[in-house]
């Protein structure tokens, strides 16, 4: 049990399970999954579907944070990619054709990749502080999206586009497969190649890594490109869901929720050691909380405060300091303070 508790994902998983249990106690149908027309439905399925945009953004954010950076522009990139994709579909003669939608989606993702490259260029080549470098695009990006959509909310009715966010594949939401594929691809690339350890090295100490011959510039650039591309996909899912490109509302504040998810998952904002599984759990915590608010019928006036209170509680549950107090209160076993702090610092800091 103690060994289990020492695992870096123990407290994030614990928080997630606690939220699910509380929801189920409040309204037992929360846990219920039903089969209708060969497709699964239920609150849990909704969570897995609706979390897709935040999940993609948070996965990219994890890589950027691991290099000691931060990407504030993800929300703006989402807006741009949605605007590009929907404007192309809107302007085409056959908005319902799959090939049109595919081309539009690839264009949206391509533009996002270039925006990620721009961020990476500012940070890795020009050596601008990440928070400032990505702030540029955060502010400018929505303006670009407005230019693309001519200041209007472009609405589109296209069956193949709708499928991205609301379609079903093998009885499960298609969006779930998108983020599962992204998470798996990132986990495999990071851990089956040397990218993961070299990223951590750059994040822990860029100069020491340079002296050891690590190409830190390429690694940092790559992280921002990944973050931009994933944000682009997230933007398309978002637009597909509302069937419109809304330059102002798309990805609004998502950068902050993504950072929150990364930290809840146990990756330190100081860079270095990171965990993809942790980020997945962090996003699920936030999304579960979001549906808790809907599910418990918290009024929209109260929901931000409710959300904040629960986040504070989740953060406290994961705090090593609180664990120490807990142990002191229960008069539990004596532990070595030194190692305790070290183990946990990595998890929460």
């Amino acid at each position: 049990m103690t060994r289990l508790m020492k695992h870096r994902l123990f407290w994030p998983v614990f928080s997630l399970l606690a939220l699910i249990v509380i929801n189920t106690i409040a309204r037992p149908q929360f846990i219920k999954i039903t089969m209708r027309d060969g497709e699964f439905y239920g609150a849990l399925i909704d969570i897995l579907r609706n979390c897709a945009p935040l999940m993609l953004v948070a996965l990219g954010m994890t890589l950027v944070i691991a290099t000691r950076g931060i990407d504030l522009s993800v929300g703006a990139v989402m807006a741009v990619s949605g605007a590009v994709t929907l404007t192309i579909i809107d302007g085409s003669s056959s908005p319902g054709s799959t090939s049109t939608v595919l081309v539009a989606i690839l264009a949206g993702i391509g533009v996002s990749l270039v925006l990620g490259l721009w961020n990476g260029f500012l940070v890795a080549v020009l050596d601008i502080q990440p928070i400032i470098a990505t702030l540029v695009l955060m502010l400018a990006g929505r303006g670009v999206a407005l230019l693309i959509t001519d200041g209007f909310i472009t609405t589109v009715n296209s069956e193949p586009l709708n499928f991205v966010a609301t379609g079903y594949l093998f009885a499960l939401p298609f969006a779930l497969f998108i983020w599962l594929a992204a998470a798996a691809a990132i986990a495999i690339v990071e851990r089956r190649t040397a990218l993961g350890v070299l990223t951590e090295a750059v994040g822990i100490n860029p100069e020491a890594s340079r002296l050891a011959g690590v190409r830190s510039r390429g690694i940092i650039l790559g992280a921002y490109v990944a973050s931009g591309t994933l944000a682009g996909i997230a933007g398309i899912i978002y637009s597909s869901n509302i069937r419109a490109a809304d330059a102002n509302a798309a990805g609004d504040l998502i950068e902050l929720y993504a950072i929150l998810a990364v930290v809840l998952g146990g990756t330190s904002l100081m860079g270095g050691k990171f965990t993809i599984a942790g980020t997945v759990i962090g996003v699920l915590i936030i999304q579960t909380l979001d549906s808790t608010i809907l599910f418990l019928g918290v009024s929209s006036a109260q929901s931000p405060v409710f959300f904040a209170i629960v986040v504070v509680i989740v953060v406290l549950i994961q705090s090593p300091r609180v664990h120490q107090w807990g142990r002191a209160l229960t008069g539990g076993f004596r532990t070595r303070p030194g190692t305790e702090v070290r183990n946990d610092a990595e998890v929460t800091a």
Partner: peptide, 23 residues
């Protein structure tokens, strides 16, 4: 400019060789 304190001994030792071989 030397040790990467949070990486393991093994990762520290193999870092430069890995960097030379490429990602």
């Amino acid at each position: 400019e030397g040790i990467l304190s949070e990486l393991s001994v093994q990762e520290n030792i193999t870092l430069a060789l890995q960097a030379e071989r490429g990602v």
